[in-house]
Amino acid sequence: MSRLLNYLTVFALTYSFYVVFTGASTSFSLALGALASAAITVFATPLLISRELRLADVVRAAYLVAYYMYYMAVAEVEAHVGITRTVLSRRIRISPAIVEVPYYVRTSFGMTLIAGSITNTPGTVVVQVDTAGRVLYVHWLKAVTYRPEEARRYISEKFEEFAAKIFG
């Protein structure tokens, strides 16, 4: 019973996705969806969460929302403006390179959030991850440095700050 919160969290995720996907508004859909979500939650929770969630983790969820706002409103816009400028300029100046970007978060969810954030902003793509060496290999369209730590400051420092707070 100590892992009840794990199951409730996965159920909330599954059920809210169901409601949006189905466009459920009738008690027919809501009731049967709750049943299906419960059954799937029992199967999926052990595959999703390994540690025990606590009530205090709500703070992490709040950081996730804050990060989403920041990422969509700031990080994405900055990256898009940068790439648009490059694409539209008369003399395209790029210096493509694959650089090492170290990461220090401990969970695979945190690492995946960083990697996804890097890939989703135009101009940088994660091409490989070395989980043993804790390094992401990032293709950088306008590389300004080859030094790992410096590259990290340009590419993923802000992402990692949030990832550490959200997933640890």
Binding site: T14, Y15, F17, A44
Partner: peptide
């Protein structure tokens, strides 16, 4: 595949299943 793909796929497990269930239920 890599840890990134694995973790992303993990999140998809309940979502794909419940979407399929929704299609069957309705």
């Amino acid at each position: 595949l890599s840890e990134i793909v694995k973790t992303s796929t993990r999140v998809l497990i309940p979502l794909i299943l419940v979407a399929g269930a929704s299609i069957a239920i309705h």
